[in-house]
Design a protein around this nucleic acid. Structure first.
Lengths: 236, 236
DNA sequence: CATGATCAAATCCTATAGGACTGGCCGAAT
DNA sequence: ATTCGGCCAGTCCTATAGGATTTGATCATG
């Protein structure tokens, strides 16, 4: 991306595809989000506007816009005239609050989604669980990245299956935090066997077509995640 | 705000108060939010970056940052290279989805809040209901603005009373939409008597200290709002 | 009349410049 | 030795400039 040729955007456009084009701020946003999700940016670390701009070889303006959007997700926090920082480490209380919120939202999502399930979507859910089973779970982040991705995809699919844009928004406000916790909570992937079994139980409930059973299976899953994390949690 | 003196910020600082200072983007954000809440910006209307900058006598940069934050609230929508627009009018389906989401979140908020209630906070809730009763409810927006404000304040207070940052975030994602519906849904304030009685019922449940009763009263309120709006709704 | 090309204004998008603030370092004075 | 004040690099914040794109109107043509 040359500094003097911002017009180099229409590069590699296969055909007259009017698909929503991207601007630089979108690219910066995704880059920062990936850095946060991947753990490359640790909690508490400063995210300098100018520094990020230099690193990505863009001007500070799109970086500023991307960070403004990220702030609303809770992943980064801003102090006026002092800049942005990655949100601090989760405390035990934060985690308890997050699980409380998930318990309020995710079982409802499961109940609603169950009623609108199509064979295609059910297959997608099954694929997510299958990916969860086959994903490597090594100690380094690169090795369990796919596991986390499949986990998040499973829950997000259910949220989207509700067909309710507001439930999707409510879940999205939590989803990023869930991911962040998995990264920084310190528990790693010590509960894969249990978690996979619970996801499978949710999937089975969906397949049965009983919304109440689906909601119950999801509530059970979230509660058990909470229980395991509280048992494993380090300092807090 | 003179263009050539951005350093005119420390104006009127009574004492060495280190309270979080504001930057221009914050001011622009609040200004735009007020315009949206007040209905001065109608759904579908374009929100020009340069135009807003000229109107508020600032440069486009802070306007761009403010709009980036607003986009995440759902109040405005952005299309790359085409700009921002106020989110379109609520449809009947949108409204049904919003109420479904409120039903999932607000009764939980009420239950959690009931358990952490202090006399001071109960008084604040009572004040909100009292304001609701005394607020004028004329036909023009300026006349029922205070009514809407008291309504929103009541529900927001309950969300904050949970002490759960994620439930607050989830409610906040809905709160703005609730407000938007009241403005653009066309129903106006035709149900004030019923709504006030229901708010009073929620307040009474809180005063009784029974979390389940509070949750039930809140669910009852949301369901009745939904019922009245569906009956009154215009085109949809 | 309908349709498509041409052009100008408005707008979006990015880069750059420069003022203001912060935090750390160093030296001087007490 | 400690404290105070100045210096400086880094950063945030806003304004401005200019290229790229979209939009709407005007106009020519089938």
């Amino acid at each position: 991306m040359q500094p003097a040729s911002p017009g180099s955007r229409p590069e590699a456009r296969p055909a007259g595809r009017p698909v929503s084009r991207q601007v630089l701020a979108d690219h910066v946003y995704e880059e920062l989000l990936a850095s946060l999700m991947d753990g490359r940016l640790e909690p508490g670390a400063a995210v300098s506007i100018d520094g990020t701009a230099r690193e990505l070889d863009v001007s500070p303006t799109p970086v500023r816009e991307a960070l403004a959007r990220l702030e609303h997700t809770g992943m980064v926090r801003r102090v006026a005239l002092k800049g942005y920082r990655v949100a601090p480490m989760f405390t035990r209380e934060d985690f308890a609050e997050l699980m409380e919120a998930r318990l309020a939202i995710e079982p409802v999502n499961a109940r609603l989604a169950c009623g609108r399930l199509t064979p295609g979507r059910l297959a997608e859910l099954g694929q997510a669980v299958a990916d969860l089973k086959t994903a490597p779970r090594g100690p380094s982040f690169a090795e369990y990245r796919d596991y986390l991705e499949a986990d998040e995809r499973f829950h997000r699919l259910i949220a989207e299956l509700t067909g309710n844009q507001f439930m999707v928004a409510a879940y999205a406000a939590l989803g990023g935090q869930v991911q962040r916790f998995r990264l920084f909570g310190g528990v790693g992937i010590t509960d894969a066997e249990n978690a996979i079994a619970e996801h499978q139980a949710v999937l089975d409930a969906f397949a049965s077509g009983d919304p109440e059973k689906a909601a119950h299976a999801m509530a059970d899953h979230v509660q058990k995640v909470r229980g395991r994390a509280i048992a494993d949690a380090p300092a807090g």
